[in-house]
């Protein structure tokens, strides 16, 4: 019995250590209203960074998230550290009716999430009639942002091409990212003070990074 317990303890300790050594690649608001997930597409990779294959991307991308002062949310800096030519940063956002923070976009929490995409700014209306909630995502780099099917998250490219005919809408994008380039994302609850545009994000990251 004792060797078995020791093995189990060591396994858990190892797993916890690995997890803590890993940087966050999925961002979720504390109340569950919106999950932002990143992936990478290269000539020979089409993966979500939070899957088992994420170790393959170590040192290719750096993702740093900081909490916002003025509202609930994050400002996130993604930079290409060792990327091959033609790499695309994949990202998806959705699952806004999750009852609490999760690390996956569950299709059941996507139903009736309504996304308004205006250039680099996405507003999602979720919740229930007469009890609506609003969450905002802004990215610093314009790209093809489109509605996609939350049931089709097998890989970033499959999701991106999945189309909008679904009961689990999410938004997805494939955004070219060059070596050394920094792309910012701001996932937040809008209020009188927190009302951000794409061009404000690099400075916002600097401010929250102090």
């Amino acid at each position: 019995m004792k060797p078995l317990r020791l093995t189990a303890t060591l396994f858990i300790l190892f797993f916890v250590c690995r997890l803590s050594a890993q940087k966050e690649t999925v961002f979720c608001l504390p109340d569950g209203s919106g999950i932002l997930r990143f992936g990478l597409v290269t000539a020979n990779q089409d993966i979500w960074l939070d899957t088992d294959k994420r170790l393959a991307t170590d040192n290719l991308l750096s993702i740093e998230g900081r909490h916002l002062d003025e509202t609930e949310g994050y400002i996130i800096e993604v930079s290409g550290t060792a990327l091959p030519e033609g790499a695309m940063l994949a990202w998806t956002f959705g699952g806004c009716d999750s009852p609490g923070p999760v690390h996956d976009i569950h299709p059941e929490y996507c139903k009736d999430n309504v996304f308004s995409i205006e250039g680099t700014s996405i507003t999602v209306y979720h919740g229930k009639v007469m009890r609506l909630r609003i969450t905002q995502l802004v990215t610093s780099k314009p790209s093809d942002i489109r509605l996609a099917d939350g049931h089709r998250q097998e890989s970033p490219q499959i999701l991106f091409l999945s189309g909008k005919k679904t009961d689990a809408p999410v938004v997805a994008s494939l955004c070219p990212i060059a070596q050394g380039e920094k792309i910012y994302f701001c996932l937040y609850k809008p209020n009188g003070k927190a009302d951000y545009a794409d061009y404000m994000l690099p400075d916002l990251f600097k401010k929250e990074n102090k």
Binding site: L147, G163, K164
Partner: peptide, 10 residues
């Protein structure tokens, strides 16, 4: 007719 829902959820 792929997007049945409106932002106000009505």
């Amino acid at each position: 007719l792929d997007e049945p829902q409106a932002p106000d959820h009505g």
